[in-house]
């Protein structure tokens, strides 16, 4: 290609290798080294998140392996008692799992209807001014420390529930479950509202043109079109509920109890970890290791929900 030299004037020495003389060799070298060092430093910072993820997995797996040296996986998954600190220890994760599932389900039963209706209202009906006020308030609701929610569950919500059901024990899963629902509400609302607002205006206009009302359009067009995004919001809400710690540690009681009745007290995975951590367990003991085994189960649950949620959100975004 460079053979066609017709256009290249004689003095044009395209192969010349001398650098452009703009600045001194020293200055150029300093500049290049400085840029490289800075880029390297930034890269290291970015790698901290990779390292953290790796270390989380490593710590959980290594300590759990120690745990499973003593406890068989079969017992862990099938035993119906969780009493690692007793003289007659049992290591069945089921009671903790049941507690986790019950409190999360109660939370979802609160968050899904309220969250979906609120999101529909914000996305389809609310005036910009109402949104402008509501959204920061929801943000604040999501910013309240969880320990404060724990206080709220134990000393406000449960007493209120006892007023309705006088037999309800002071520690129960219903109160904290409801509070968890309120806690994940901002997340559920904001993610499902995002999903609904992303539905193209065209679809709505099509529906209006057919004579549908606002509500009919929202319910029959917007919600179905945004389903995957809304479900993603629920899934990410579940993940948050499952990992919630302080509310259940404070208000649900700390006794592992294999029950599906939300009116009873029970410990969740997270509450158990807190309970053990508060005590003084020697490093390397089976009790110490049991919290990592419990943590591994929790991490696997939230990882699964998170991945599921993000895949659904991504798919939703690709459609529109």
């Amino acid at each position: 290609m460079k053979g066609r030299t017709v256009l290249v004037p004689e003095q044009g020495t395209a192969g010349s290798s001398k650098p452009l003389l703009v600045e001194g060799e020293g200055r150029r070298r300093v500049r290049r080294i400085r840029e490289l060092v800075i880029e390297g430093g930034l890269l290291v910072a970015a790698l901290v998140s990779v390292a953290t993820t790796t270390m989380i997995l490593a710590v959980l797996v290594v300590e759990s392996l120690g745990f499973f040296d003593t406890v068989s996986l079969y017992d862990f998954l099938t035993d119906t008692l969780w009493t690692p600190l007793f003289d007659d220890p049992h290591y069945g994760i089921l009671p903790l799992l049941a507690g986790t599932i019950v409190t999360s389900m109660v939370g979802l039963l609160v968050a899904i209807p309220i969250g979906t209706v609120s999101a529909m209202y914000l996305s389809e009906f609310a005036s910009p001014r109402v949104r402008e006020i509501i959204k920061p308030v929801l943000e604040l609701l999501g910013a309240v420390p969880t320990v404060v929610y724990g206080y709220f569950a134990l000393l406000v919500v449960t007493p209120a529930l006892q007023w309705i059901w006088p037999d309800l024990p002071g520690f129960n899963m219903l109160g904290p479950g409801i509070v968890i629902g309120i806690m994940i509400l901002p997340l559920v609302i904001s993610l499902s509202e995002d999903a609904m607002r992303a539905v193209p205006m065209m679809l709505r206009e099509g529906s209006y043109a057919m004579g549908a009302t606002h509500l009919e359009t929202a319910w029959r067009v917007v919600v179905p079109a945004a389903t995957s995004g809304i479900v993603a919001a629920y899934v990410l809400g579940i993940s948050r509920a499952v990992g919630e710690t302080m509310v259940v540690a404070i208000a649900a009681g700390q006794n592992p109890n294999l029950t599906w009745n939300p009116m009873e007290p029970a410990a969740t995975i997270t509450a158990y970890i807190v309970q053990v951590a508060l005590g003084d367990l020697p490093h390397g003991s089976i009790g110490y290791r049991s919290i990592f085994a419990a943590g591994l189960v929790l991490a696997m649950m939230t990882f699964t929900f998170n991945i599921l949620g993000h895949v659904m959100r991504k798919r939703f975004r690709e459609v529109y």
Binding site: M1, K2, V8, Q11, G12, T13, A14, G15, S16, K18, L20, L21
Partner: peptide, 13 residues
């Protein structure tokens, strides 16, 4: 691909 020569030195930038 190809070249842009900058004069006076005629270097391909």
């Amino acid at each position: 691909e190809g070249a842009i020569l900058l004069y006076p030195e005629g270097r391909n930038i």
